[in-house]
Every structure is written in C-alpha cells, then in structure tokens.
Write a protein that binds this DNA or RNA. Structure first.
Length: 429
RNA sequence: GCGGAUGUAGCUCAGUUGGUUAGAGCGCUGGUUUGUGGUACCAGAUGUCGUGAGUUCGAGUCUCAUCUUCCGCCCCA
C-alpha cells in the first residue's frame, strides 16, 4: 500500500502557491522595474557554489548555519547563505566587460540552517544590488535611491518606513579618539548592535567588562543616542572625513528626493563584519518587524577575497519582512490571478473552432484560458467564476451555425454574440 | 541549541470527568434548471483526530517519544 504523501514542505521551507504568486510577482516586478530604472544590470548565479568561496569571504570559521554537503565527486559544496560571495566571483570574471563603475543586481534564493520564526525561514529570496569600483558616497546614495524606488512601486512612503544610516568608520574613529584601542572594536560593535533590544544598564556593564572606563562609556552613549547630524559633528569633529561622507550622503539624498526617508542613527552596525564605511538599515515606522533591507560599504571585501582592491557597496532586501509589512498595510492577496477570458464549447465538434478562436485572442494579447474538454453551459460558467475570468466565451451549435460565439461579461451578466473569426483588440464587450 | 504553546474535513474551528457509527460554518460535488455562473432551496462526500508506541474492556480525549507551526532566548539576511 502507498503511504499517504506528506504535502507540507520541509521545515523552514516555503511553497509558493498560485495565490502566493500574486504578491511574489508584484515584488519581483518592483525590483525589476526600480533596478532597471536606475541603470542596474541583472545577473544570476547558481545557488550551489564551492564551500571554499564562502569560507574565503568570511575570512574566518564559517557559521554552522551554512548548508554544506559533498557531491558524488566528493567536492565540498554549499548552498549560498547570501548572494555577495558569488557576486564577487561573477564580477571578477566579468569586470573587464562591464561598464565602470559596475551597477548590477540579482534576485535569488539563499539558505541558512536556523530556527524558523514568522517571516524568517531557512530559505529566502533576496534582492541584491551592488556598485563596484566607486569609492564616492554617491554610490551609497544611488543604491538607497533605487531601494526607495522599489518601496514606492510597492506603495510605501516615508510614513511607512525609515532608513537609518550610520558609519562604521565614523564609530571606529570615534572609539579611537576616546581611547578605545582597535582590538576591542569588533566585540564592542557586537554589543552596540544589540542596543535597541537590551537594557542600557546591562549594556554598560558589558562594556565595562571589555575594559572601557565609565567616562568612555558615557561618551560613547552620548554619540549613540545622538540623531542630529550637527551634534554628531561636534562630537567627532566636523573635519572628520567619515562625518563629511555622512553629510554628503544626506545632501545627495536631498538631490535625489528621498531625504525624508533618512535618519542618522549611530547605533546601526549591521551584523556582517565586512562592512567598512557607511551602513544602513530600513525599518517600518511602527518598529513591528525586523529590518526590511540593509547594506553599506564593504571596501575591504574584494581585497580579502581576491587580492584586488575594489571599492564596493551594496544592499540586500529579503522577501520575508516586506511580505509582512505589505500584508499589514494592504492585506495579503486572497486568491490567484484571474484571466481576461475563458473559452468553452458545447460539444466535441466545436473543440477545434473554439481553439482557433482562442488562438486569435491570445495573439491579440488577451489573457485567455481554454477548457480542454467539452463543458455543458452550467459547468462552464461555474468554471469561469472559479477561474476569475472577466469574460466567458462559449461556443454552442446555434451560434456556430451563424459563425458567431457568445461572449458574456461575468461582472454585469450581459451577453452578446461576436463574430467567431474577426477579432480586433477591443472585441470584448 | 534552550524554554513555552500548538496540531481534528480543502479552510476557520467545536468536541463535556476516557464511552456506541467524529461535528458546525465556509468551500466542494450533484440536483431543483439536459443552452448560462454569482443568489436561494434540497441532497451528498468530507477525516488513519500530525506520526509512532503505551495505559485501558474502550483513547480525538490520559502517558511517552517524534515531527510541524507559533512565541520568547541565542543568532542573524
């Protein structure tokens, strides 16, 4: 006996049903449209790559959250946890052929073995845009501009979300300035990254445990809690080049029309250790969800991975959180996509004439579904409803004898006969 | 990895201190109407009660294990 098939996907993995596809299509269209509008070129890389590639990128022991395996030739492989390493590989092979600086984008699935929660899976699709070969902060400005365009496409504005901007370089410089040596920066940044979530007292104790003096901690906190640009300038010195870069980013954002989306927030760090300069994260205004997207400048990554010094910055935007935000604002689509027209027929002798009619309609660009077998009228119009067809065209002997087909508007119930062979773009009543 | 909940029809859920053939609404199928859907009325089928063991005369209900989903912690895209 055949055992019952378990229809659920694996833990943390998602099926995209025809209903899910309605939102997914919208999201993809937004990414595609915005990236194309701002001049990015699309690429796509395999989901599987050598383990060594990801190891090289990490520059250290890889997280145990990576999906890794050996293939039949005993090659050590991994499912990509993010797109950046494969993008670097692709770019290195392609860079002489691409315009410079190169603006490229991709949308692909990434895997991470971890505990799933709502909006967080073991697999997700991520939109990535990167600019290679440009050290100026205009690159960051251009990346964020594109992300804002995506959000506009989806129907979100500055009331819905905000992009918090900071600079790792600025923070690092500040730490040195107040006398915190380099080797403690990484551990400290990990702590600062938690700031939103934990108690300030606990955070200060942890910082003290790292050897910071009370005065250093207080000065650091003053910076972290300052969201005013001029104020930050006073703290780090307005001649500070990282500070000037942040200022430039804000003025570019003004030129590109999205200044209202940006907030200065020195406590933004980003978990990934490869960021070197400006970093940013976007959150919904209610702070109900995790970050919508994030990114920044990672000038050191190429030299670490490839030995070539290439300045770069980029952004990653997953499909999980945006879906939650979209659902909260607009509601999630309840049903699958409809068609413009569905075509059915009364008996088998009409199958071929109906098919010829369908062919003409599809050639005109009408989204048309076709009943593959004979349907009596009752069944056919029920199917037309279920298929969410705007129009139902039914071929029966009486009409066929006159060279016509009955077309019914499913919303109004109005029905008219139409010539079977002469269709133009506006033949639907 | 740790702690806490959860799972019954396609969907949302009910199911009394363990007791005969497991229920509702929506949806589905058929009919009222053999050339016309949505509304109405009538009828029907929903099912290994997440899975596997155990206790019991008897388990959807109790025990154990396991899996899923969800919520914290950890981690992070």
């Amino acid at each position: 006996m055949t055992e019952k098939l378990d229809v659920a996907p694996l833990r943390g993995m998602r099926d995209f049903t025809p209903v899910d596809w309605v939102f997914r299509k919208k999201l993809l269209a937004a990414f595609d449209k915005a990236s194309t509008k701002t001049g990015f070129l699309r690429y796509e890389t395999p989901v599987v790559d050598s383990y060594e590639l990801f190891e090289r990128k990490a520059g250290e022991e890889l997280s145990d959250q990576i999906y890794e395996f050996r293939d039949k030739s005993d090659r050590h492989l991994a499912l990509r946890p993010e797109i950046t390493p494969t993008m670097v590989r692709l770019y290195m092979g392609l860079k002489e052929t691409l315009p410079f600086p190169a603006k490229i984008w991709s949308f692909g699935q990434c895997f991470r073995y971890e505990r799933p929660t709502k909006g967080r899976y073991r697999e997700h699709f991520q939109w990535n845009i990167d600019i290679m070969g440009e050290a100026d902060v205009s690159a960051e400005a251009w990346i964020l501009f594109t992300a804002v365009e995506v959000m506009k496409e989806l129907g979100f504005d500055a009331k819905d979300y905000q992009i918090r901007v900071s600079s790792r370089a600025l923070l690092s410089g500040f730490l040195l300035k107040i006398g915190v040596t380099h080797e403690r920066h990484a551990a400290l940044m990990t702590l600062i990254d938690k700031k939103e979530k934990v108690d300030a007292g606990w955070l200060k104790e942890e910082m003290a445990a790292l050897g910071l003096t009370t005065e250093q901690i207080e000065r650091l906190f003053t910076l972290l809690e300052t969201h005013d640009a001029a104020e930050i300038g006073n703290l780090v010195g307005s001649e500070n080049v990282d500070y000037q870069n942040l200022q430039k980013l804000f003025s570019f954002a003004e030129a590109l029309g999205y200044r209202e989306y940006l907030q200065m927030d020195p406590s933004i760090i980003r978990g990934l250790s490869y960021y070197t300069g400006i970093v940013f994260e976007a959150f919904d205004t209610q702070r109900q969800f995790r970050a919508l997207f994030g990114g920044g400048r990672y000038d050191a990554l190429f030299s670490r991975m490839t030995g070539k010094d290439i300045p770069a910055c980029g952004l990653g935007f997953g499909d999980g959180v945006i879906r939650e935000l979209y659902t909260a604002k607009f509601g999630y689509p309840e049903t699958y996509e409809g068609v413009d027209m569905i075509v059915g027929y009364y008996d088998e002798s009409l199958q071929k004439p109906a098919m010829e009619f369908v062919q003409k309609a599809i050639e005109l660009g009408i989204k048309t579904d076709f009943m593959l077998s004979v349907q009596n009228p009752k069944k056919f119009f029920t199917m037309a409803n279920k298929r969410h067809a705007k129009f139902a065209a039914y071929l029966a002997p009486e009409e066929y004898a006159k060279g016509e087909i009955a077309i019914k508007n499913m919303q109004t119930g109005e029905q008219k006969n139409h010539c079977l062979t002469e269709l133009d773009r506006n033949f639907l009543p």
